[in-house]
């Protein structure tokens, strides 16, 4: 399993000849439709989010998925003729290839709210969340799954002045990023450029 903390790097090196690294190609619908071997499929991507994180497939109804560089999948809210040569198409979304696929920080922050699984979504205390955001690894009691987890904390709910009356109960769990849980330790996968000391 990769322990790559540069996580969201999409510059792409070492792509095989079948992949043209400067252009985006829409993922084939299913394995039967693909002409580049090993390439992820739309079906596979939707299944991954459902099986691992409990994201309902309806979330992706308007979306198309694209590859730029081997294994680097982008999610786009619309569609375009494929292939297309542009700087960015929607957002960096998922690293496929290898045994364990890895969502990006952008994807988890944007779509993590639709995750309903309880063994791959972990809620941290504020103190733990602060360490996670700073890029620190931490020992953690966790009975859920190992591998890449969606890491959240409660934020934005405890209105002191009553300025936000409909949210006075508690914060909503807000995703921060991806953590790799292995051997009792949560390893922060927040990319270097996104880490903060709060």
């Amino acid at each position: 399993m990769s322990d790559d903390t540069t996580g969201d790097d999409t510059t792409g090196t070492g792509a095989p000849a079948e992949n043209k690294p400067h252009q985006f190609e829409r993922l084939p619908a299913t394995a039967d439709d693909r002409d580049v071997p090993e390439r992820a499929t739309r079906e596979g991507v939707v299944e991954f989010w459902q099986d691992r994180y409990g994201v309902d497939p309806s979330v992706w109804e308007g979306y198309t998925f694209w590859e730029k560089g081997a294994g680097k999948v982008w999610a786009f809210a619309d569609d375009l003729p494929s292939p297309v040569e542009v700087e960015a198409l929607g957002m960096t979304f998922l690293r496929t290839g290898g045994e364990h696929w890895k969502p990006t920080t952008d994807a988890v922050q944007r779509f993590g709210r639709y995750a309903t699984a309880d063994d791959t979504v972990i809620d941290l205390s504020r103190e733990q969340a602060t360490r996670f955001l700073a890029g620190e690894d931490q020992e953690l009691d966790w009975d859920g799954d190992w591998g890449y987890l969606i890491v959240r904390h409660e934020y934005g709910g405890e209105s002191v002045t009553g300025a936000a009356p409909d949210r006075a109960d508690s914060g909503r769990p807000e995703p921060i990023g991806v953590g790799l849980f292995l051997h009792g330790e949560l390893r922060s996968q927040v990319p270097k450029g996104r880490r903060r000391d709060l």
Binding site: D78, L80, V84, V86, A88, G90, M91, D106, R110
Partner: peptide
């Protein structure tokens, strides 16, 4: 531009140069 769009979770944008 790209990093701001990413932080804001924008997924309907195509960036061109």
């Amino acid at each position: 531009l790209r990093s701001n769009a990413e932080r804001c979770g924008v997924s309907n944008v195509v960036v061109t140069k």
